[in-house]
Design a protein around this nucleic acid. Structure first.
Length: 908
RNA sequence: GGACGCUUAGCUCAGCUGGUUCAGAGCGCCGCCCUUACAAGGCGGAGGUCGUAGGUUCGAACCCUACAGCGUCCACCA
């Protein structure tokens, strides 16, 4: 688009898709193994294949993209691997739901057909989120896109299962697991959400055989008495000692229950007597094993009562049964009482169904042996968490780690690579056959009649391999050697256990066999970790502080937001609002911050390009060299500010302070560059300098703008590229791979900053006088100045042009001696007195108030300084330069006060 | 029950290692301005005892302790 057609208002829709297509088609995001170049690798936390883009993703992916683009421009071989997760339960759910709408269920189809359908479904609707990410501008290496059920990744899953099995770390066991009756599968402890719930505590009376005594137990889940196989008391409990060894009679069922003793029982809870139901409570299960009690499972997989229950309850839903049973117990005189009681109830975190502790055969991973190295590397700071406090959470979890239930009773996922001999010819045939690929026959009896385990693996069993499997593991690939360990993981803290911790374990265990980039086996922890830094993003909440969720309907659709404000605006806003480790309260309107900023940048470019056109013409510009001739204060100052901004931006990103980096950009571009520098440059464009000089000024301004756009690019890739291409002729080059500016300390100059600061304050003082006295902006005024130390008159002269333009001063007079205009409005800046003669315009009262306010502000400062200096301890203990500085400050403030008081006296 | 985080202007939040005119920004509000980049803008202004109470220190928004309110995570006694 020719410069002359630059719109007055930035329109992102004109720009974004066009650039994304170009970047992608030119392969600018593709990373390859490049010896001699340092890699910078990021793996995306793979979103659910069913997922659509949410604000949470926007925050995550924006942060990753900022880091990746920044590193790419810094010269790293930046590799950002995208992909999706098959998300077993969630995806199966979604497909079953759509089946349900046709009045069918998965059992109608059968396993094979159903799985086929899910694959088909994935082809059609899956991976939406991947397309949406492009709208956000993420610079993922799409050639490397992976899916957790890809062939290669599935191979990795089987390999890991077999290796762990061979090492004795995978085992099969009957355990109480968290059973979701809705999904009809076990879920891991971490997938259970515990919610405090109002319920009842029921006291139930059991008769004691051969005795007039009774055993009263308390329970929140009375229906489970049907599975009771004992009653238990604490051996130290004097009340019940004599009952131990006797037999209680289970009401309704009539089963005989031994009364046993165990330290586990809390004597102070309820009656101090507990019913034991080994098949339906994890603690009872352990107790049952210890005392060799039978396990009676009374539920089927949907938590309806099974044939182990008395006939009248068989087939009932668990809660229905509870009601009926209470009625029956009451009728039989077995219900002693019930109390309101708040207890914790576990729910399935995906469907909210109350989880049932359920006895079943499951596969587990022994975690303790894997945990030790994972703890060590974090403890030793090889893997660093940002913010740091998550380290404690991580350590705490690992130190109390429990075995991981990895089997799921669903159909969508990696089927467990275990087969069973169906013929059972020899006794050894009972052994499960664990193999990387389907075995042809039973190794013991040779039959081909084999049956694969029905279960699939927990989704996280593939996710925990992500930083390896996406790079080719278990094969020893160049990619794996070069790009693993990855550098930064950006993820939400709620999956620190599910995912982050397990990735550390997996990488450390399974990368041992893969050489590092140097070609030798990996030995040290530094080479075995999956990533060096973990950035935990904030949680996005709505403006009322509620978590964004589909059910609340409070999560804006990011695509709508992008359509309305632009991707750059959304990215900037989110980055700007996201302090490290703090929640973000987001509302769509906040994107105005980013949109306005984009518009500001756009118009700065528009202004400079318009002037370039006018002064230099259409010919393409070369901004590779900074014109250093005739630098004035403004030039030196903006160069100083620019280089500070570069430094600050880099420092902020090095420390993962994304919001601070964004603020650096905002402040530099808006406040320094636009508000001051561009305004000052105008004095030259419109002044009486030669066309050559003006041309140099515009080239210089564009040179600085070029650097600003490079700085901006990681955060706002689209607008920066669009403008950058127009600033100069770039040939084939894109900003995506342009060099990131390096801070040049030569230009950072405190003296220049100070001088400019003085000028700015003078200008602000005059503006303040104008504003407070309601002087029309169009009215020219004169200013009289008495310099602080008499010196610097020439210096001041050189600023004069700034004043003329920025505060519309037609006449500046340097005062010597004690003369002053009157009536006048006045101010003191760093000891320099400023007078604006205002014949007939000064409102004496308001002028007095202005001066008094300033005096009292200064007086407060003087007071606090004098208090400090008056304290002998201060001058003794505080560092010399601090004391000296305070003394100096006090002196200056007092001098200013005196001058202001002089002006005040003049008023009357 | 345990751990962690937050509390600063009307709103949303910065403030990294205690000392720079440290009490800030954006929005909102008030006043002036369509000044040839931008009204999605410019200029000026009003607004806060930094949750409460102690403590450490020459000096505290910042460090320590307790408390209150809000929030998150973990564990769990039936």
């Amino acid at each position: 688009m020719p410069t002359s057609e630059l719109q007055k208002t930035y329109n992102p829709a004109d720009v974004e898709d066009r650039w994304y297509r170009q970047w992608e088609s030119k392969g600018l995001f593709h990373a390859r193994v490049t010896p001699g170049k340092k890699p910078y690798t990021v793996v995306i936390p793979p979103p659910n294949v069913t997922g659509i883009l949410t604000m949470g993703h926007v925050l995550n992916e924006t942060i990753q993209d900022i880091l990746v683009r920044w590193k790419r421009m810094l010269g790293f071989e930046a590799c950002w691997i995208p992909g999706t997760d098959h998300a077993g339960i969630a995806t199966q759910n979604a497909v079953e739901k759509s089946l349900g709408r046709e009045g069918r269920n998965r059992h109608d189809l059968g396993r094979e057909e159903f799985v086929k359908l899910v694959w088909k479904w994935r082809e059609e609707y899956g991976g939406m989120i991947i397309k949406q990410l492009r709208k956000l501008g993420t610079s993922c290496d799409w050639e490397r896109e992976r899916f957790t059920m890809d062939e290669g990744l599935s191979r990795a899953v089987n390999e890991v299962f077999v290796r762990l099995y061979e090492k004795g770390l995978v085992y099969r066991g009957k355990y109480i697991v968290n059973w979701c009756p809705f999904h009809q599968t076990a879920i891991s402890d971490d997938e259970v959400e515990v919610v405090a719930t109002n319920g009842n505590l029921y006291y139930i009376r059991y008769a004691v055989e051969g005795s007039s005594e009774q055993a009263i137990v308390a329970t929140t889940r009375p229906e489970t008495i049907l599975g009771d196989t004992a009653v238990c008391v604490n051996p130290k409990d004097a009340r019940y000692k004599h009952l131990v060894g006797k037999t209680a009679i289970l009401p309704i069922v009539g089963r005989k229950l031994p009364i046993i003793a165990d330290e586990y029982i809390d004597m102070t809870f309820g009656t101090g007597m507990m019913k034991v139901t080994p098949a339906h409570d994890p603690n009872d299960f352990i107790l049952g094993q210890r005392h060799d009690l039978p396990q009676i499972n009374i539920f089927d997989v949907t938590a309806h009562l099974n044939e182990s229950a008395p006939k009248q309850y068989e087939g009932m839903d668990r809660f229905e049964c509870r009601k009926q049973l209470i009625r029956d117990l009451e009728a039989g005189g077995h219900l002693v009482k019930m109390e309101h009681y708040t207890h914790n109830v576990g729910r399935c975190y995906r469907c909210d169904t109350i989880v049932e502790p359920y006895l079943s055969d499951q596969w587990f991973v022994k975690m303790k042996p894997l945990a030790a190295p994972a703890l060590r590397v974090v403890y030793e700071g090889k893997v660093r968490f940002h913010p740091e406090r998550w380290q404690k959470v991580y350590e705490n979890w690992i130190m109390n780690i429990r075995d991981w239930c990895i089997s799921r009773q669903i159909w969508w996922g990696h089927r467990i690579p275990v087969w069973y001999c169906a013929d059972l010819v020899k006794p050894e045939c009972k052994e499960p056959i664990v193999a990387r690929t389907a075995p042809a026959k039973c190794p013991h009896c040779g039959t081909k009649n084999l049956r694969q385990d029905d279960d699939v693996l927990d989704t996280w069993f593939s996710s925990w391999l992500w930083p390896m499997s996406t790079l080719g593991w278990p094969s020893d690939t160049e990619d794996l050697r070069y790009f693993n360990p990855t550098d930064t993981l950006v993820t939400a803290p709620d999956i620190i256990f599910f995912w982050v911790a397990r990735m550390v374990m997996a990488n450390m265990e399974f990368m041992k066999g893969i050489p590092g980039a140097h070609g030798k086996p990996r030995k040290s922890d530094d080479e075995l970790i999956p990533f060096r830094d973990v950035y935990f993003t904030s949680i996005i909440r709505d403006e009322r502080g509620r978590k964004m969720s589909k059910s609340l309907g409070n999560s804006p659709d990011p695509l709508d937001v992008i359509a309305k404000y632009g991707a750059d605006a959304l990215r900037f806003t989110v980055a700007y609002l996201a302090p490290l480790g703090q929640d973000v309260l987001f509302s769509t309107e906040k994107c105005e911050i980013g949109r306005n900023f984009a518009n500001k940048v756009w118009n700065a470019g528009r202004f400079l390009l318009m002037n370039k056109l006018e002064l230099i013409g259409e010919k393409p510009l070369d901004v590779s060299r900074l014109p250093e001739e005739h630098l004035d204060l403004a030039d030196r100052w903006i160069l100083s500010r620019l280089n500070r901004a570069i430094k600050d931006f880099n420092d902020a990103l090095d420390g993962f302070r994304i919001n601070e980096a964004s603020k650096v950009l905002y402040d530099f571009i808006w406040h320094d560059f636009c508000d001051w520098y561009v305004e000052l440059v105008k004095t030259r464009f419109y002044g009486d300098e030669t066309p050559e000089t003006k041309g140099r000024v515009v080239v210089r301004a564009l040179w600085i703008f070029d650097k600003a756009l490079r700085l901006l690019h990681p955060v706002m890739p689209f607008i920066s590229e669009e403008l950058w291409q127009q600033v100069a002729s770039r040939g084939d080059e894109s900003l995506v791979r342009a060099e990131f500016p390096a801070a040049d300390n030569r230009w950072i100059d405190a003296k220049t900053d100070g001088e400019m600061d003085f000028v700015q304050k003078l200008i602000e003082a005059v503006r303040n006088i104008r504003g407070e006295n309601n002087i029309a902006p169009s009215k020219d005024i004169s200013v009289h100045v008495r310099l602080a130390n008499g010196a610097g008159e020439q210096v001041f002269e050189s600023y004069a042009q700034y004043f003329r333009k920025l505060v519309r001063i037609e006449n500046i007079k340097i005062l010597t001696g004690s003369a002053r205009p009157r009536p006048a409005s006045s101010a003191v800046v760093d000891g320099t007195e400023v007078f604006v003669p205002l014949e007939g315009l000064v409102d004496i009262d308001s002028e007095r108030k202005r001066l008094e306010k300033e005096i009292s502000r200064l007086q407060k400062l003087v007071d606090s300084i004098e208090q400090k200096l008056g304290n002998p301890q201060f001058s003794e203990k505080a560092p010399k330069e601090i004391v000296e500085k305070e003394r100096e400050k006090g002196k200056n403030f007092r001098a200013s006060i005196e001058k202001l008081e002089g002006s005040l006296a003049e008023l009357s």
